[in-house]
Amino acid sequence: MEGWDPNTKSTLTQIPLLTTKAGPRDGAAWTQRLKEEYRALIAYTQMNKSNDNDWFRISAANPEGTRWTGKCWYVHNLLKYEFDLQFDIPVTYPATAPEIELPELDGKTQKMYRGGKICLTVHFKPLWAKNCPRFGIAHALCLGLAPWLAAEIPILVDSGMIKHKDDAASSNES
């Protein structure tokens, strides 16, 4: 579990683990799995809220629950930077982790694959593989996206690659 900051770790351990090993093609088992995913997400969200650390909103975009969309944000220098968030559940899930995309930031940073998929740390994959099928969407967000945002957004803001929407508006106005 090395490679993550203590906050992330403590949070991760508090997210309930999943038990069902099923992908989107496994029918009823997937449903079962989806239920578990929801429970985990609820717990994670509640945890974030209680810690005044709410940072995303997601919802299933299709009834099967294989595509998810939503928003995520990060506060830097008292300014809230908000981005769209989307990802699909791969068919080999849960052996393969979902690839989280931030389409707005596509091409603005090197830590990103084409299409806005974020690059995860080298530690992520082994950890995920090790914890399959206990890790779910909530874990992926917590381990993948949250550290990425914390690392990349300040750099992007300072380098001027991204601008706060107010600033952008004001600059547009002017």
Partner: peptide, 12 residues
């Protein structure tokens, strides 16, 4: 429930 949890006001 998830929706509700997400909508809930986060403690400041």
């Amino acid at each position: 429930q998830f929706e509700f949890a997400q909508q809930a006001k986060s403690s400041i």
